[in-house]
Amino acid sequence: MGLARKRQRHVGYNQGVSVTILFFASIADALGHRRLELPSAPGDTVESVCDRLMTAHPQLERFRPTLLFALDEEYVKPSAPVPAGATLALIPPVSGG
């Protein structure tokens, strides 16, 4: 509940300007963070957001060939549009079970 309120407030003042990116496992270790925000740009796709992320954090480039992407908790193609305020998760090859 506290989380939901926090998210609402966040979307409130940041609406239209940023994309939240989530990191897990190996790629979170390489970045040293589990989430960050990037300014969003008109016409953004998963690919274009990823390009800007990799430019800012080149140590993540080596993960790119095997990454999948989820937008607001749904697997999407790299060509999928990314609306402002969306949450993009970078999904390394999964290994649960």
């Binding site: 897990f24 496992a25 390394p92 290994s95 079970g97």
Partner: peptide
């Protein structure tokens, strides 16, 4: 189910 869980669910083991 087990096979699909291992392929699709965003969980990682170290």
């Amino acid at each position: 189910l087990v096979n699909q869980i291992k392929k699709r669910v965003p969980v990682w083991k170290k």
